[in-house]
Simulated assay, not measured.
Amino acid sequence: MNKQRQIEILSKLISIRSVNDHEAEVADYIASLFEPYKDKGVQIERVTYAPGRDSLVVTIGKGDRILGFSGHEDVVDPGDLEAWDSDPFKAVIKDGKLYGRGATDMKSGLAAVIIAMLDMLENDAVPGKIKLFATVGEETGEYGAAQLTKEGYVDGVDGMMIAEPGDSMGEVGFTSKGIVDYIVTSIGKGAHSSQPEKGINAIDHLIDFANEVKPVMAKFDKVDPVLGKLTHVQSLFNGGEQINSVPAKAVIKGNIRTIPEYPNKVIFDALEGLVNKLNKKSGYDLSIAYSFPEEAMPGDANSPFIKLIKKVHDEMFDKPLVASGQSGASDGSEFLHAKGDFSIALLGPGNDTSHQSNEYVDVDVYHQSVDFYKQLAQEFFNQ
Rank of each mutant, 00 (worst) to 15 (best):
V226K: 11
V363E: 06
E359I: 12
N358T: 00
E334R: 15
H232M: 11
I130V: 10
P304N: 01
Y290I: 10
I30E: 02
I60W: 12
D167K: 14
L121E: 02
T59K: 04
M169S: 11
A191S: 12
I309R: 11
G137H: 10
D208L: 10
P298I: 09
N123I: 00
A202V: 08
I203K: 05
D352I: 10
G166K: 14
G68E: 09
F317Q: 03
L67N: 05
L148A: 07
D119E: 15
F381W: 05
T48A: 12
H72M: 13
P165G: 09
R65Q: 13
D318I: 13
M297G: 02
G283K: 14
G128A: 07
F372Y: 13
K280G: 14
S343K: 00
E171F: 01
K374N: 01
L98T: 02
N20K: 15
Y37C: 01
N255V: 13
I14V: 14
V370F: 09
V92K: 15
I115R: 08
D371L: 13
D158C: 05
E122H: 04
R101K: 13
S333R: 14
K177Y: 05
V216G: 06
G109Y: 04
E122L: 11
D158S: 14
A218S: 12
A250Y: 04
E261P: 00
G188Y: 00
G71D: 03
A210K: 08
Q147R: 11
S15T: 03
F89M: 11
S168N: 15
I256Q: 10
G254M: 12
N358A: 10
Y37I: 08
E23Q: 10
G144M: 03
G199C: 06
K319E: 14
K310Y: 04
P320Q: 04
E8R: 09
F89Y: 09
A91G: 06
S193H: 01
G61Y: 08
I114A: 06
K40C: 00
S282G: 00
V251P: 08
K107P: 02
D158T: 06
A210E: 12
L98H: 04
T149F: 13
I162P: 02
G137M: 09
M1Q: 07
A125Q: 12
I130S: 02
M160G: 02
I203D: 03
E197D: 13
L10E: 01
G41A: 06
M297E: 07
G159Y: 02
K214S: 00
V365I: 15
V226G: 02
S303I: 01
G340I: 02
D124N: 15
D300M: 01
D181E: 09
V75Q: 00
G273Y: 05
A191D: 04
V370R: 08
K229M: 06
D314G: 02
P320N: 04
V126H: 04
N201T: 07
K150T: 12
G199F: 04
I16C: 06
G63L: 13
D77Y: 13
K3F: 05
A146F: 05
D221F: 01
P88L: 10
I200N: 14
E8W: 09
F89I: 07
D204H: 14
E315W: 05
R46A: 03
I7H: 10
P247I: 09
A323L: 12
V126M: 08
D208R: 15
S176F: 01
D352G: 11
M217I: 08
Q326V: 14
L278K: 05
F292L: 13
Y153K: 14
A296T: 10
S327E: 12
Y143A: 01
E151W: 04
H22D: 15
A202E: 07
